[in-house]
């Protein structure tokens, strides 16, 4: 049962991170393709967005390994 719980925790965490990262990256690429001169500003926004999105699945990975 522990392995099942770990799999569900990591799977759902990764699903959320995948959707979030996909949205952020697609908008950033769109913005850079339209206005390449705004690359620095978009880099900063993307960095903070991806960083915050990935915090939660990392906690999920940690909790999954602890319950296993």
């Amino acid at each position: 049962m522990g392995a099942l719980a770990a799999a569900i925790a990591v799977g759902l965490g990764a699903l959320g991170a995948g959707v979030g990262n996909g949205l952020i990256v697609s908008r950033t690429v769109e913005g850079i393709a339209r206005q390449p001169e705004l690359k620095g500003q978009l880099q900063t926004t993307m960095f903070i967005g991806v960083g915050l999105v990935e915090a939660m699945p990392i906690i999920a990975v940690v909790i999954a390994l602890m319950v296993m």
Binding site: A14, N21, V25, T28, V29, I32, A33, P36, K39, I58
Partner: peptide, 20 residues
């Protein structure tokens, strides 16, 4: 990633799995 997007060259992911 952003350099590749600006130069329109192909790129790989942003390393999510490596961080996990």
């Amino acid at each position: 990633f952003t350099d590749a997007a600006a130069n329109k060259t192909p790129t790989r992911g942003i390393g999510t799995v490596s961080r996990f």
